[in-house]
C-alpha cells in the first residue's frame, strides 16, 4: 500500500507486530488488581490484570479483543509498565493521553515503540481505541478496579 502514506502513519510496522504477536497477552499471573475496559460502540474489549508487589508492577497481563490499534496499544502498555512503580506507570498513562491530544510523542525513556502510535492522534475516531488499554490500566491501579469505557456515547 505504498501509495498511501496516511495509512502508514496509522499502521506502523511495530504496531502490526504487536497486533500479530501481542506481549503479555493472557499471561498466567496472580493479580492483585484488575479492571475491564470496553468501547461498547466499537466492540473493543480489554481486561488488565496487575500483580503489585510493594508498589511495583511485578507482572501484568491483558486479554480481550478488538481492532489492531486497541490490541497493539494494550500490548505496548504492558511492556512499558512491567517492572515500573505505580507512580511511573500512571505517568506513562498521562504521557500517552497527552500524545493523543497533541499529536506529539513525549520524550520519555522506554516510550520509543509507543511513540509509533502518535499517528493515531490524526484519526479522531481511533483515539479511543488506542487509549483503551491505558485507561483500563489506570482504573486497575486506582483503588477497587472496575470498568471503564472510552466511548463518548456518540454513534
Amino acid at each position: 500500500m505504498a501509495e498511501s502514506g496516511l495509512l502508514e502513519d496509522l499502521y506502523r510496522e511495530i504496531i502490526l507486530d504487536h497486533y500479530r504477536q501481542p506481549r503479555n497477552r493472557n499471561a498466567t499471573i496472580e493479580p492483585t488488581c484488575s479492571a475491564d475496559g470496553a468501547n461498547p460502540l466499537c466492540g473493543d474489549q480489554v481486561r488488565v490484570d496487575v500483580a503489585l508487589v510493594d508498589g511495583v508492577i511485578e507482572a501484568i497481563s491483558f486479554s480481550g479483543q478488538g481492532c489492531s490499534i486497541s490490541q497493539a496499544s494494550a500490548s505496548m502498555m504492558t511492556e512499558y509498565v512491567k517492572g515500573r512503580t505505580v507512580a511511573e506507570a500512571l505517568q506513562g498513562v498521562d504521557a500517552f493521553q497527552q500524545m493523543m491530544l497533541t499529536g506529539e510523542a513525549p520524550d520519555l525513556e522506554g516510550f520509543d515503540d509507543i511513540a509509533s502510535l502518535v499517528g493515531v492522534a490524526k484519526f479522531a475516531a481511533r483515539v479511543k481505541c488506542a487509549s483503551l488499554g491505558w485507561k483500563t490500566l489506570a482504573q486497575a491501579l486506582a483503588e477497587g478496579g472496575g470498568t471503564v469505557t472510552t466511548d463518548d456515547g456518540s454513534r
Partner: peptide, 24 residues
C-alpha cells in the same frame, strides 16, 4: 483476522465508505 475497524480504516483510504461496528 482483521477487525472491522481496521477494514473500515483501510477502505477509507481507497475512498470506500462502509459502516463498522454493531449497527445498533
Amino acid at each position: 483476522g482483521v477487525h472491522p475497524h481496521d477494514i473500515g480504516q483501510v477502505l477509507d483510504t481507497k475512498g470506500v465508505a462502509i459502516r463498522t461496528g454493531h449497527h445498533c
